[in-house]
């Protein structure tokens, strides 16, 4: 499993959602550092997959040749000596940053650039292979990818999710109605989550994970799901949490969202930071890159492998090079 499964369905073609631009961009009031990331590396070990298939799965690659370890080391660490079946995906390759209180940081980059992995590593959910992350308080990840237990009812999932977030049983019961209302799933709350439509599942997961109020908030693609009404509600919810938390990380494919909500933008490419600066500085450069990328319509290596992108490509000029 790699981080790539987190957002395979999103395309590179960014339609800048203007609807998200209505809100006021928060004014930065910089405080003391609340998060220090020092030379962070994350390497995934992929068993039973050659590096080729890891590439196809969307994990960024190209010149990122997996670090070869000695045969003995591989034997010891993996125990699996099925010829060539152990490969490594170097998803985050040396990221450093200092984030201060009051900043909201947007993270942009094409699919498979290591955004989600980096976010999880910063949140302390994926242990770093090298380097370290220092934070004030406990960062919490607000995501829609946390399929808790699909075979259980929404009700059980709310309880499990809430308890895992550190709430007590009583607190979860108190917020239960609020969560169900926010997710807008009605009677479905008593059915197993695997019977939900993808939109309902995403809404419920978002509602569960936003039930707690963290010190540092990390939002992963949460604004990309649901209909316009839900997006508006979740935007408001994040804004509310942001006011309490003070520091927000936002991974989004919608440039509009990043522009509207972030004071600082970090552009990741193949696991490295290629730009880090104010929103006005980074976003135009990134847009330029994405547009150029779109225009070349080169194969699906770095992204654009979704059905939407494919349709667009075929509908456009027919002279695109394949692969």
């Amino acid at each position: 499993m790699t981080e790539a499964d987190a957002h395979l369905d999103l395309d590179l073609d960014l339609e800048f959602d203007r609807e998200d631009l209505d809100g006021e961009r928060p004014v930065p009031s910089l405080g003391s550092p609340v998060l220090v990331v020092d030379d962070l590396h994350v390497v995934f070990r992929v068993l039973g997959a050659k590096s080729k298939s890891a590439t196809d799965a969307g994990a960024h690659v190209q010149e990122a040749s997996p670090r070869r370890q000695s045969l003995l080391k591989r034997l010891v660490t993996s125990g699996s000596r099925h010829v060539g079946a152990v490969s490594e995906v170097h998803a985050v390759r040396g990221v450093s940053m200092v984030v201060r209180h009051g900043e909201s940081v947007g993270i942009v980059g094409v699919n498979g650039s290591g955004k989600s992995t980096m976010l999880r590593a910063i949140a302390g959910l994926i242990p770093p292979t090298e380097g370290s992350v220092h934070a004030a308080g406990e960062p919490a990840l607000l995501g829609v990818n946390a399929a808790l237990m699909p075979q259980l009812s929404g009700e059980r999932n709310i309880m499990i999710g809430g308890l895992a977030l550190g709430l007590t049983q009583k607190q979860v019961e108190e917020r239960y109605d609020e969560v169900v209302d926010f997710a807008d799933i009605g009677e479905f709350v008593n059915l197993p989550m695997k019977t939900y439509s993808s939109g309902m599942g995403a809404r419920l997961r978002f509602a569960i994970s936003s039930a707690a109020r963290p010190d540092i908030l990390m939002v992963d693609e949460a604004l990309a799901t649901g209909d316009a009404a839900f997006r508006e509600r979740s935007r408001a919810r994040i804004e509310e949490i942001r006011k309490d938390a003070g520091t927000v990380f936002l991974v989004s494919h919608s440039i509009g969202t990043v522009e509207a909500m972030c004071t600082r933008v970090i552009w990741l490419h193949q696991g490295k930071i290629v730009m880090d600066g104010s929103t006005d500085e980074v976003v135009p450069e990134y847009q330029k890159f994405v547009r150029a990328h779109k225009r070349t319509k080169s194969g699906g290596r770095a992204g654009g492998v979704g059905p939407r992108a494919r349709k667009k490509r075929n509908g456009g000029k027919g002279d695109k090079p394949v692969g």
Binding site: L141, L148, M149, L165, S209
Partner: peptide, 9 residues
């Protein structure tokens, strides 16, 4: 693993 990847405990 999805629980481990998304929540702290």
């Amino acid at each position: 693993s999805s629980l481990l990847r998304n929540l702290h405990f």
